[in-house]
Design a protein around this nucleic acid. Structure first.
Length: 582
RNA sequence: GGUCCUGUGGUGCAGUUUGGAGUGCACGCCGCCCUGUCAAGGCGGAGGCCGCGGGUUCAAAUCCCGUCAGGACCGCCA
């Protein structure tokens, strides 16, 4: 028998048991005449007590951190006064009878003690050691649990799990593709899927009316704290379903996962906000509603102001920063610079003094009635700092939305879990594309809102989409839409964005063809699992919930990927490298 | 492509502002001692291309330029 028990599982009930443990030496406290070993395995740590004077146990002096050992012994209650309340196993210890060294270990390149923050490249280069540490064990087990309950939730709702190909056709839309050269057809390439989008719609035509997949997606775009080249999505599509059906089905899955991570937190439903309201109140399409500090509309107050910075502005909005009237001039200047960097002409700040007096370099330009209206609108009290931006509405929202986050956003591990559905996204981007045509905000198969279809041609930028995002604590967790299944509507959207029929046929012909053979109305969604698990784990960075992530420059410090390949591989693929750029 | 931050024994830091001997702290590592510790303790020891290259200077971890690596962000991510 290799082992009989897990070290971390031993409790007072096990006293008297003869046990065989296998694990790593987490710590050795050598008193000369007695040696204490902390033996760590997947379940935790237990103390083994060794008398090195006994035959066969002299090895205890020689053991080092992270050696792998097999310990045969008897579970014993710890003597009075030596119980360790900090350890789950702290009531017991294992009196060793035999110790076998299964593997020796060189000194670790970094402490495996999770109290020490270690340089991330070093951790990634030796990820197999980093994975032994408690946070990574916890995070990856949480991730497994999230995958499990979401899979269960979808299966219980009659969704069918279906895999789609990894080697797919490149489509020029969207993100940059990773490509794979074809050996059998030199000069031609597969792409790795950015998402299973087109396949899941084909599955709907194929009669699987509820599909899901925990799918790997790949996009060759620059990496960020919340973005890796490859990431996982809970990908979902359903037929004969509208937006409500999708939101319900996804809610069940993500709330089940939230419950696993925060048992008893009692999240029952996910509130909704329209895209327009989110932009006006939070200056973001992914509002972090863990804190208030909402954007307040001030345009009407300054409708006929003499203050030139506000006069005639498309929009004037402000923030009330509670209790921050004493913010230093240097910080205010830094905020102003930040606002300018984001596109504002300037940032007006006002300190609210006792008696409601406003202190600001520009106070003298703002009339008394305007000042009173301002204080009233913002709900300002003495000690507050007011920040105001004027200009184009989209810019004002964007600038104040960013400053709101800069000043108020709590760490990811604080403030609970605040999901929000953002609904009624516009069908097209706010401004026309370079070609003077509308650009789809989501993708060109998104169904317009039924009340707005008639304005498609006359006023396309005002048309809402049946598109929706799921937001958690200010992170975009996922997005989805009702898809266009009617060729006539699809044709109108294509011609609006400048796809002529031939081009559309070339790019997405197989999908359009499929839709000619009886396409059910369908809608779908995809949840970003890496981001979701990161938030649940209280991590600011998705690398902390990925076993083997890449650095910001796309390198894996463990394997060295990417690497050059052998010239014969290139030849087989019909590829020749151009000379390196100077 | 851009902005900002960080590179100092194996690890985490201080030292850089104001140039003056690789100086310091904690952990780890090696040796010895030690029978109730649990981040054991005591004594001793080893270990450095101050990321790399160039420049300024009598003198550079420290100032300047470049470069590499990492991180955060902008662009990008339908």
């Amino acid at each position: 028998m290799m082992r009989s028990h897990r070290a971390g599982d031993l409790r007072a009930d096990d006293v008297g048991e003869s046990v065989v443990l296998c694990g790593w030496v987490a710590s050795r406290r050598d008193h000369g005449g007695k040696v204490f070993l902390d033996v760590r395995d997947v379940a935790g740590v237990v103390q083994a007590v060794v008398d090195p004077q006994l035959p066969g146990l002299e090895v205890a002096h020689r053991l080092r951190h992270e050696w792998v050992v097999r310990v045969v012994g008897d579970v014993s209650a710890r003597p009075d006064g030596t119980v360790n309340d900090d350890l789950p196993t702290g009531a017991v210890e294992v009196i060793a009878r035999e110790i076998e060294v299964l593997s020796e270990a060189e000194p670790s390149p970094f402490p495996l003690d999770d109290r020490v923050d270690v340089d991330e490249v070093l951790r990634l280069r030796h990820r197999y050691l980093d994975l032994r540490r408690a946070p990574m064990q916890r995070n990856l087990r949480l991730r497994a649990a999230v995958n499990r309950v979401m899979r269960e939730a979808m299966t219980e709702q009659d969704f069918v799990e279906i895999e789609t190909p990894m080697l797919v056709a490149s489509t020029p839309e969207g993100a940059r593709d990773f490509v794979v050269p074809s050996r059998l057809r030199p000069g031609e390439f597969y792409a790795l899927p950015q998402s299973p989008q087109l396949f899941k719609q084909l599955l709907m035509v194929g009669g699987f009316d509820r599909y899901f997949q925990i799918a790997r997606c790949l996009r060759d775009e620059d990496l960020r704290a919340d973005r890796q080249f490859e990431f996982m999505q809970l990908d979902v599509e359903m037929s004969f379903a509208d937006q409500e059906d999708v939101l319900d089905a996804i809610s069940v899955a993500v709330l089940a996962a939230a419950e696993v991570s925060r048992p008893g937190a009692g999240l029952a439903s996910i509130p909704r906000i329209t895209w327009h309201e989110a932009m006006e109140r939070y200056g973001s399409d992914k509002p972090d509603v863990r804190f208030d500090m909402e954007l307040v509309e001030l345009t009407d107050i300054f409708g006929d102001t003499d203050f030139r910075a506000f006069a005639g502005a498309d929009a004037v909005k402000g923030l009330r920063v509670a209790g921050q009237a004493d913010m230093t001039r240097a910080r205010l200047d830094a905020l102003t610079e930040r606002a300018k960097a984001l596109g504002a002409l300037g940032l007006v700040w006002m300190r609210v003094r006792d008696g409601g007096e406003l202190e600001s370099p520009v106070a003298k330009f703002v009339s008394e009635s305007e000042q009173l209206a301002l204080i009233d609108a913002l709900g300002a009290v003495a000690g507050d700092l007011l920040l105001i931006v004027a200009g184009k509405r989209a810019m004002v929202r964007d600038v104040l939305g960013t400053i709101r986050l800069d000043l108020g956003r709590p760490p990811v591990s604080e403030g609970g879990l605040r999901f929000v559905w953002v609904v009624d996204f516009p069908l097209f981007e706010e401004t026309l594309g370079e070609d003077g045509r509308p650009a789809p905000m989501h993708h060109p198969f998104t169904m317009p809102h039924p009340d707005d279809v008639e304005r498609l041609e006359s006023d396309p930028l005002s048309v809402r989409a049946q598109a929706y995002d799921l937001v958690l604590n200010g992170w975009e967790l996922g997005s989805g839409s009702v898809r266009i299944h009617r060729p006539d509507v699809q044709q109108r959207v294509f011609s609006l964005i400048g796809f002529d029929p031939t081009e559309a046929q070339q790019r997405f012909g197989f999908l359009l063809d499929a839709f000619r053979f009886g396409a059910p109305p369908h809608a779908g969604f995809a949840v970003g699992i890496d981001r979701f698990v990161a938030i649940l784990a209280g991590e600011e960075n998705i690398r902390e919930v990925i076993a083997f992530p890449k650095t910001q420059s796309g390198v894996d410090p463990l394997t060295g990927a990417p690497t050059p390949i052998d010239p014969t591989q290139l030849r087989d693929l019909g590829l020749r490298l151009s000379p390196p750029k100077e």
